[in-house]
């Protein structure tokens, strides 16, 4: 099961490098919004609450622009059927989850330093911040992967992905913004623990449910 998932992940990875569609669109989207934000704010010093909100808006909408691609590509190129014949549903889900995780990880790796550089608001514990970001990536991917699979099978793919994801992710985004704001305000680990409990339990619940439900989305 794990080896199958990893081979699906590697297949997607290789395919991605042929076109670089997902990574290009997510990067350009992220960098464009970041530029607009920092350009219009100029030299003004942002309060932590505002910069935390802006940061997660940039990440969320960049993610929305391309996380569905991993399933849409299979449907559009007609390879979904072959994949369905070849493996069970669960390894496919896990492989796609890993791929989305990687895409988002690369995005964060580039956007985060740029954001901190441009807005110049950073104080607080770097390690704690990276930990929140890491959990944030897992959280975002755990909720969106199955929705991407749903959206890929409908007729209006692009717009629907954001519409379906938004209500499910809203509580998550609220907590992520709050946690990031707390880090910017130099909070300690213990002050952040209620947020961490949420951020750890959310993907566990989501992934379990997705694992059980994915075969209904994937097969007819």
């Amino acid at each position: 099961m794990l080896s199958k998932a990893i081979s699906i992940f590697l297949k997607d990875f290789r395919q991605e490098f042929r076109t670089r569609y997902a990574i290009n669109s997510i990067m350009l989207f992220g960098i464009t919004t970041l530029t607009v934000v920092s350009f219009s704010l100029g030299e003004s010093n942002l309060p932590p609450k505002l910069s935390a909100t802006l940061y997660w808006i940039i990440i969320f909408f960049s993610a929305m622009s391309s996380l569905a691609h991993v399933f849409v590509r299979e449907e559009e190129s007609g390879t979904a059927m072959a994949l369905r014949l070849h493996t069970e549903a669960e390894p496919v889900f896990f492989g796609k989850f890993l791929f989305n995780f990687t895409v988002l990880f690369v995005l964060m790796l580039i956007i985060t330093p740029l954001f901190l550089l441009f807005t110049d608001t950073y104080q607080g514990d770097m390690l704690l911040f990276s930990f929140i970001l890491f959990l944030g990536i897992i959280d975002l991917c755990s909720a969106t992967t199955i929705i991407a699979a749903i959206v890929a099978r409908t007729s209006t793919k692009g717009a629907l992905f954001a519409i379906l994801s938004f209500p499910i992710m809203l509580p998550l985004l609220l907590v992520l913004v709050r946690a990031t704001e707390k880090v910017f305000l130099e909070s300690t680990f213990s002050q952040l623990s209620p947020d961490f409990i949420f951020l750890v339990s959310f993907p566990i619940v989501m992934l379990t449910a997705s694992f059980m439900l994915f075969k209904f989305v994937w097969f007819d």
Partner: peptide, 20 residues
């Protein structure tokens, strides 16, 4: 599937978020 996924997030919404 979507309805079930969405209903799973409701406990987070109703019980967890107002508390933290």
């Amino acid at each position: 599937v979507y309805s079930i996924m969405a209903s799973i997030t409701v406990p987070f919404l109703v019980f967890v978020v107002p508390r933290i």
